[in-house]
């Protein structure tokens, strides 16, 4: 399958801060990818490189097989929605929509109109008079109705309530099913998007920690609970992601063996198995990365 985005060994420094440290990955065409990571992990830097707003210090950055920086042919195919988007001071909502119509070749006005109604956005309100949630909703309308072959959402929903976020997920999925395109969504709300995304990129401290299929990740780890001795015996020799202890009782998250008899073996060991959510897996993986770095210092 074709790659829409391809980064190879990309490093970006701001002064003595290394924002991206030898990052390589590819995004397959017509997939929804979740770009996950803590604040300051490097997500926004990555997005800026992908959209040609910044140049990498070293390494290759390719979008649709070409370098995005100052490349109009490539950038016209990219829609980038970020939380701190700036608009000219006197712009009203309808001015933003009119600009978007000329900017994006695949712009769908009918779709934009129906989204404006869904999110109850006032056309004649000035952008700087919108509530934080409405401001975010305008970005979401632009991102969806632009139908760009590559759409990047960088934390698009600051201030949006749960109803509006669900609306965003629903419209995104429905429109994506009808008009397949490549979507990269960076978010903290992992639980909310875990069923939407097909591929997971987890970045921490400027490095890629996970680059994997969401479905594969789901069965990659398992939490084992029970008497400590039994848990230790059951998890012996396996890669341990996380451990909690209370008296003689332990809860340990380990890599799954993928063995279908695991559950039966757990019963005979007297331990319980619980699934690990994508969110938990991301937290454990990130935490372990932080603690292993600290201990090597």
């Amino acid at each position: 399958m074709n790659s829409v985005v391809a980064l190879s060994n990309v490093t970006k420094r701001y002064g003595d801060v290394t924002a991206l440290d030898g990052v390589s990955f590819a995004v397959r065409e017509n997939t929804i990818t979740g770009l996950l990571g803590r604040n300051g992990a490097g997500k926004s830097t990555l997005m800026r490189l992908l959209t040609g707003q910044d140049l990498a210090g070293s390494g290759r950055t390719e979008i649709f097989g070409a370098r995005p920086y100052e490349n109009e042919a490539v950038l016209s195919q990219v829609s980038f929605i970020k939380e701190n988007q700036r608009y000219p001071d006197n712009f009203k909502v309808r001015h933003v929509l009119r600009a978007a119509r000329t900017l994006y070749p695949n712009w769908d006005q009918d779709f934009a109109d129906s989204l404006m109604e869904d999110f109850r956005l006032p056309l004649n309100r000035r952008m700087n008079r919108l509530s934080r949630g409405m401001f975010s909703a305008v970005g979401i309308v632009l991102g969806l109705a632009s139908r760009a072959p590559l759409t990047l959402f960088d934390e698009p929903y600051l201030g949006l309530d749960a109803v509006a976020r669900q609306l965003f997920y629903d419209r995104l999925l429905a429109d994506y099913a009808e008009n397949p395109r490549t979507v990269v969504l960076s978010t903290h709300l992992i639980d909310e998007v875990s069923d939407l995304i097909e591929h997971v990129l987890l970045i921490d401290g400027g490095r890629m920690l996970l680059d994997q299929d969401a479905e594969t990740l789901r069965e990659q780890a398992v939490t084992v609970t029970g008497p400590t001795a039994a848990v230790d015996e059951f998890t012996a020799g396996r890669d341990e992601l996380h451990r909690e202890q209370m008296g003689g009782f332990a809860r340990v998250t380990v890599r799954s063996t993928g063995d279908s008899t695991e559950r039966t073996r757990a019963h005979s060991h007297g331990v319980e198995l619980e699934p690990v959510s994508l969110q938990q897996l991301v937290v454990h993986t990130t935490t372990r990365n932080t603690s292993s770095k600290e201990s090597s210092r």
Binding site: D170, L173, D195, L196, E198, A214
Partner: peptide
């Protein structure tokens, strides 16, 4: 649409 999951899945 019903399960709110990715169509590829």
């Amino acid at each position: 649409a019903f399960h709110r999951i990715n169509p590829a899945t």
